[in-house]
């Protein structure tokens, strides 16, 4: 079976800073894969490099068996879409939800726009009442739902999720995580999800990779993590930290 995403010895360099130091990764179709690490670990950079938003210095990225060049074509964006971390920064401040959702359809020349927008809004649990609102008239959770609708409207097979809930309140986070699981099940999507929170990654993903300083620390399954079968000290530290504060 060809991997949905295959990353091989990927290096990303920003102005002489090596943000990724030869990371390899395989994600199977329909799988949900997690990237965990702290700030500066390179987890978001890896995601952005796949999306074509970070300068790749060497190594290769293949999506659905097709190796990607430095330029992505329109067909790529029909396959791969992304949801950003900050719901306040990822929606254009001067556009209504309607306009935001129309844009990808216009770029790719869809004619049944009206129907697709309705369906996308229904799918993310926002009724028609939200269609003509501006982003400042929406709460954080609603914004993130719009961002998910926008990513899904082109019917991609792979969704890149960059800390999609870290800016949300815990109760809203649960709703958004449930929504993401639901659409994955319905559309048989492949997820590549970045988070600093081990609990979220074990909840959402079957396999995960722990990253630190631009390198992979170890590859684990969610079950490994639940039973604390980890081999590296760094992962153990992360696990301990996620239990909360323990008085010395």
């Amino acid at each position: 079976m060809t991997a949905a995403i295959a990353v091989d010895r990927l290096e990303v360099i920003f102005d002489r800073f090596r943000a990724l130091k030869g990371v390899s990764l395989d994600v199977q179709p329909g799988e949900s894969f997690g990237l965990v690490g702290e700030s500066g670990s390179g987890k978001s950079t890896l995601l952005r490099a796949i999306a074509g938003l970070a300068p790749v210095a060497s190594g290769s990225i293949a999506v659905n068996g097709k190796t990607l060049g430095p330029r992505r074509d329109k067909a790529f964006y029909r396959e791969v879409q992304m949801v950003f971390q900050d719901p306040y920064g990822s929606l254009h401040p001067r556009q209504t939800v309607d306009r935001l959702l129309q844009e990808p359809l216009a770029i790719h020349g869809f004619v049944d726009g009206e129907k697709r927008i309705q369906r996308a809004l229904d799918e993310v649990g926002l009724g028609n009442g939200f269609r003509f609102r501006y982003s400042h008239q929406l709460s954080g959770g609603q914004r993130q739902r719009v961002a998910i609708a926008r990513a899904l409207i082109l019917e991609p097979s792979i969704l890149l999720l960059d800390e999609p809930t870290s800016a949300l309140d815990a109760s809203v986070q649960a709703e958004v995580l449930n929504l993401l699981e639901e659409v994955r099940k319905r559309r048989k999507l492949t997820f590549l999800m970045v988070s600093h929170d081990l609990a979220i990654i074990t909840h959402m993903c079957e396999r995960l990779m722990v990253m630190q300083g631009g390198e992979a620390v170890e590859n684990l399954t969610a079950a490994d993590l639940v039973e604390r079968r980890v081999t590296k000290d760094y992962t153990r530290n992360l696990l301990r930290a996620s239990d909360g504060f323990v008085r010395a």
Partner: peptide, 20 residues
């Protein structure tokens, strides 16, 4: 109670998460 419950926990396999 809702706030405590809705957070994902390592080892607690709850799909979907309870919402508030």
């Amino acid at each position: 109670r809702g706030l405590l419950n809705c957070m994902p926990k390592i080892g607690a396999d709850r799909h979907p998460l309870p919402v508030l």
